[in-house]
Amino acid sequence: MQRRRKNKLDTVGTGLLAGLALPVLIFFIVYLVTEDEVSFADYISGMWQMHALIKLSSLCVFANVAVFWFFLKKKYEKAARGVLGATILYAFLVLISRAV
């Protein structure tokens, strides 16, 4: 039986970092594309007042599906587990913020 070579990117930490960083990056890109004159703090506060911050954040987390499938295609199961963990963490944050 052949033994699979261990890849240094196939760690839970790599997946967790990718799963946490990608939604934040997408959120910043959305901010930069949509608002020119508004500061980031004002943007966040305006989105919170309109009850759109949680919805936009949830859409940004949706991109984790692509990263999850990428890691599975590459057979990086541990990294995919990290992305799944980050997605679950974001889901808990959404649930907590909806209760507030």
Rank of each mutant, 00 (worst) to 15 (best):
V100Q: 12
A41K: 12
L25C: 06
L84K: 02
K78V: 12
V94G: 04
L20H: 09
L72R: 07
F62P: 02
L20S: 09
R4Y: 11
V12N: 03
H51N: 01
H51D: 00
K74M: 13
F70W: 09
D36F: 13
R98K: 12
R3K: 13
F71M: 06
L95N: 05
V67F: 07
M47Q: 04
S57A: 11
A86P: 00
K8F: 09
F27V: 13
M1E: 05
R81K: 15
K74N: 11
Y90F: 11
A18W: 08
R3V: 13
I29W: 09
N64C: 04
C60K: 02
D42G: 03
A18Y: 07
D10Q: 12
E77R: 07
I96S: 00
G13T: 08
M50K: 06
L59K: 09
I88G: 05
H51F: 04
L95R: 05
M47I: 04
K8M: 08
F28K: 07
L17V: 15
R3F: 14
V33E: 09
L32S: 08
L95M: 14
F92A: 12
A63L: 11
M50H: 00
F92D: 07
F40N: 09
T11R: 00
D10W: 08
I44E: 01
L20I: 15
K78C: 10
P23R: 11
V38T: 01
A91C: 10
M50G: 02
M50A: 04
F27H: 15
V61F: 06
K6C: 06
K55D: 00
E37F: 14
E77N: 08
A91H: 10
S45C: 05
R3N: 11
V94A: 10
Q2Y: 14
Y43F: 09
F68W: 09
I88A: 01
F62L: 13
D42S: 07
V30A: 00
A52D: 01
I96D: 05
G19Y: 00
R3A: 11
V38D: 06
G82Q: 03
A63C: 08
K73P: 05
W48L: 00
S45L: 06
F92E: 10
L59S: 09
T87V: 01
V33R: 08
